[in-house]
Write a protein that binds this DNA or RNA. Structure first.
Lengths: 281, 281
DNA sequence: AACTTTGTATCACAATGCGATACTTTGTTC
DNA sequence: GAACAAAGTATCGCATTGTGATACAAAGTT
């Protein structure tokens, strides 16, 4: 009944440490509390399970039992986890949602893009997404969903690997080459489907092509049956800040119809957002 | 150009401490780091400003300069804040979005509700929301937006006071009376507009009426020019777990047309979700 | 150029978080 | 249903870790 199966690839939640921030003050307890929260994301994608026991939190967070207990209880007190008094298991708390709002409310790009994306979604009654690059992942920040999509693909916050997805490709294609190279070098270049391209030269050729064309079509590179397209949102200086992504799900859309209809829609939508952006920034 | 003005009431981010959790282990550093993150939410609604300097973080979080620095830098290292090297100001980091996904992906109610809400939004081309109660606030967890709405009202994670909004009223009306009373008692019963009802007896009468009718129409109680309606999503035992909320914005909708069209839509949508729920739970 | 404001670095102290250990409860097996 | 295993909770002395007053540096302002 509850089908959590997802057809596309998920990324884990990113590296635990950032760049060269050594020397900066760092409060270890804070890092550990986020390890606990991350455990729930890992736990969910792995086990399709909504809540975790203390022992599972230990394993998924890498903390010992005492620490896991302390931080879990702390997070319950703060409302970021909830604890079932019966089962004594923990689950994500509703207060977590606050941070989405905190991030998005100050996000000018999303603010500008939202109405344009909504309009676009109506043209062919399709899902339309806005993606941004975060490390080696593309994160969906705004999603205008359609009823037939699977639940996981309706949610903002989803991460997918940049190198093998249409939105990732167009963003990488329109950023400084050395930065793009760094992302590829840091990426875990695994074959997700049979079609996934994993060789750096082939990927760079794809990116060059995407840059030339102004869009990219991902033909079952990360999803077995689906074709999706993306076009870059560009700053005045030509650098990509995001991508408009439109998936074409299997029965209804194919390579041909995506090229004919969704590609122009994605390109046009991204261009409209880019134009509005440069005015405001 | 960038209009961040919002027409409805926002709640602050909730109490800093929960119930009677004394005795439970608590890591103070973790609490303080969340004070810093909350500062950004406060800062944004107050100042309509996207980033905060260290001194502002001090004021908004209640921490001293050293602590503010330590926790801000820690959060930067973890990716939950970003720091502009030029201005040395901090802003929310994209990694914050991860927690929305973490919460939502395991949320069976949202999963069930999403397609039904999408369908409903197409009937009159309106925004349709799913709200849940958190403390004295109603939090929007799922929003199907329409292009004409203001940005703030498109975002999941928004909090509004329960007592003076339609979704809050229908949820309070369909929960154990003592719990509802407790929520009202804890609420900050301020007049938001001229029409806001703030007397407990009047509020309880409203709730009784909402319970009898199966819906509630909020006539400019929290928004000066708008009328909105909500209907409860009920568990098999009749307890509310959420509310379907449909706002009727001013020029297009009025009290009459809301009653005629949006009320039946909200009631029907909430009932369809309730029915799917009980099967699954 | 003098001043104010804001951000960064330092460091000795002890409070605070740590985690090994022991205890209690749940639920699993025979 | 007794015996056992596994998961969750409580305890507590130690020293690690975070603390915050102070001093310093770098931007902004007059």
């Amino acid at each position: 009944m509850l089908d959590l199966t997802d057809d596309d690839t998920l990324s884990d939640i990113g590296p635990d440490v950032a760049e060269d921030r050594r020397g900066k003050p760092f409060v270890a307890s804070v890092g550990k509390c986020f390890q606990v929260l991350k455990a729930f994301r890992r736990g969910q994608t792995d086990l399709r399970q909504r809540d975790l026991g203390l022992t599972e939190i230990c394993k998924l967070s890498g903390l010992d039992k005492s620490a896991a207990q302390r931080f879990s209880e702390t997070l319950v007190t703060l409302g970021y986890l909830e604890k079932d008094p019966q089962t004594r298991r923990y689950r994500p708390g509703i207060a977590l949602i606050d941070f989405y709002y905190t991030y998005m409310v100050s996000h000018r790009l999303a603010q500008i893009a939202m109405p344009i994306l909504i309009e676009a979604s109506k043209v062919y009654d399709t899902t339309v997404n806005l993606c941004e690059l975060a490390g080696t992942d593309a994160i969906y920040t705004v999603r205008i969903p359609q009823a037939k999509a699977s639940y996981g693909t309706m949610l903002a916050g989803r991460r997918v690997p940049a190198f093998c997805t249409a939105p990732g490709t167009v963003i990488l294609a329109n950023m400084p080459e050395d930065e793009a190279d760094a992302v590829l070098a840091a990426s875990d270049l695994r074959k997700i489907t049979e079609q996934t391209v994993t060789e750096i030269p082939a990927l760079k050729a794809q990116m060059a092509e995407a840059r030339r064309l102004g869009y990219h079509v991902s033909d079952r590179q990360s999803q077995a049956h689906n074709v999706s397209t993306a076009a870059p949102v560009l700053r005045l200086d030509g650098q990509a800040v995001a991508a408009v992504h439109i998936p074409g799900y299997a029965p209804h859309w194919n390579l041909e119809s995506v090229h004919e209809k969704l590609v122009p829609l994605a390109v046009d939508t991204a261009r409209r957002i880019s134009d509005s952006l440069t005015e405001a920034m």
